[in-house]
C-alpha cells in the first residue's frame, strides 16, 4: 500500500474542481490528483501514491531505475 510508482503525465484537466492528470504507468492510464504539484506539466514524470502525485521526478534517473529493475526481473525469470 505504501508503494508509490513513477508515471508520465499525458494531459492535465480539472475534475470536480481538482487539478487532475491522466498519467501513464508503463501504458496503463490512471487519473491522478496533482493538486500538490502546482508546477507539474504534461510530459513530466511524477511519483504517484494512492491516486495522488507526491513529487516530480527526474526523467533520466527514473528510467534508469526502472530499467535496472527490469533487468533484475529478467534475471530471476531465467533462474
Amino acid at each position: 500500500m505504501c508503494l508509490a510508482v513513477p508515471g508520465k503525465i499525458i494531459s492535465i484537466s480539472e475534475e470536480n474542481g481538482l487539478r487532475t492528470a491522466k498519467v501513464s504507468f508503463g501504458g496503463a492510464i490512471k487519473d491522478i490528483n496533482i493538486q500538490w504539484l502546482p508546477e507539474a506539466k504534461t510530459g513530466d514524470y511524477i511519483l504517484a501514491h494512492v491516486g495522488t502525485g507526491l513529487s516530480i521526478i527526474d526523467e533520466e534517473e527514473a528510467e534508469e531505475a526502472v530499467k535496472t529493475a527490469k533487468e533484475f526481473k529478467d534475471m530471476q525469470d531465467n533462474l
Binding site: C2, L18, H49
Partner: peptide
Amino acid sequence: AVGFETTAPANAMSVVEAERR
C-alpha cells in the same frame, strides 16, 4: 484511512474534499 506519512495527506484530502463538496 490507514497509513504512514506517505498516505496521510491523501487520506486528509478526502476529509477536506467531503467538507468542500
